[in-house]
């Protein structure tokens, strides 16, 4: 990896309106393929931002970089004002080491398309794993809090079941509770309803609706469900070729898209449904 010039990036973001998440000219490449091209994206505290766009446009990659599942090839990501992908060292930014990543990661939670629950643990154990073994919360307290969260997602009665005994919608709700149990400031949802049967999608979207309504979480969501995105987002970003082609309030973007590519994408989606 070449020593990139990061002198233009601040060591921390300061001021009254520091975004909870800030991508600053973030670039991601897989070999020759440029997946994200100098992406700039800010998400304010408590904001729900939805990412839509054609397959391969880099939507998942955005979330994975924020979850530190992928390394970054250029630019800096800030979370809560502090650099995530880098860390200050002697007055300049250097690549984050594993300790810094661990520290920063505690701000972020993620739900995956295929749930990724731990199959050998019950729903409750899945939720308690992180709080007990990472946050060091006493077992009894972690259990109480996890039961509360499972109750919130409507899974209290299934808490002692293993994932193999749960439907997709139920697994996804447990996965949401598991992520929330870590008390993240930012929640990431990557197509959390795409692997579900149509009749159970509502169980999961309703949980997310409740989160938006009742919690001051910052959320970044990738979805192919335009109706849902329109309902709950504060802002929608249309991705095309690793860039944000167009973004705006859901009513504007869905009701009156300005760019041709956005129009094409939205009408293609409408036809498919």
């Amino acid at each position: 990896m070449t020593d990139e010039d990061l002198s233009g990036f601040p060591l921390a973001l300061e001021g009254p309106d520091v975004p909870m998440v800030s991508f600053r000219t973030v670039t991601k490449r897989y070999g020759e393929l440029v997946v994200l091209d100098a992406l700039n994206l800010d998400v304010a505290e408590g904001e729900m931002v939805t990412v839509i766009g054609p397959s391969g446009s880099g939507k998942t990659t955005v979330l994975r970089m924020l979850m530190t599942l992928e390394t970054i090839n250029g630019g800096v990501i800030y979370v809560d004002g502090k650099p995530l992908t880098h860390m200050p060292r002697n007055g300049r930014l250097v690549r984050a080491d594993s300790r810094h990543l661990r520290q920063m990661r505690s701000n972020i939670g993620m739900c995956f398309q295929h749930f990724n629950l731990f199959p050998h643990m019950t729903a409750l154990e899945n939720c308690m794993e992180g709080p007990v073994h990472v946050l060091g919360i006493p077992k009894a307290e972690a259990r109480a809090r996890s039961e509360e969260l499972l109750d919130m997602v409507g899974m209290a009665d299934k808490r002692d079941q293993h994932p193999s005994r749960l439907s997709g919608g139920q697994q996804q709700r447990v996965a949401i509770a598991r992520a929330l149990a870590m008390r993240p400031k930012v929640m990431l949802f990557d197509e959390v309803t795409s692997a579900l049967d149509p009749e159970v999608i509502g169980e999961v979207t309703n949980v997310i609706r409740r989160l938006v309504a009742e919690h001051n979480l910052t959320m970044l969501m990738v979805t192919h469900q335009m109706g849902f995105a329109k309902d709950i987002s504060d802002r929608v970003c249309f991705f095309y070729g690793g860039r944000i082609e167009e973004q705006g309030a859901p009513d504007e973007l869905f009701g009156n898209p300005q760019k041709e590519r956005t129009q094409q994408f939205l009408s293609a989606v409408k036809e498919a449904n």
Binding site: M110, N116, G130, V134
Partner: peptide, 22 residues
């Protein structure tokens, strides 16, 4: 599956813990 590693990372489990618990 790779997703198990990713879930463990998203919960901030250390590598050792991920191996032995997951």
């Amino acid at each position: 599956p790779k997703g198990q590693w990713e879930a463990a990372t998203s919960l901030n489990l250390s590598t050792t813990r991920t191996y032995f618990r997951v």
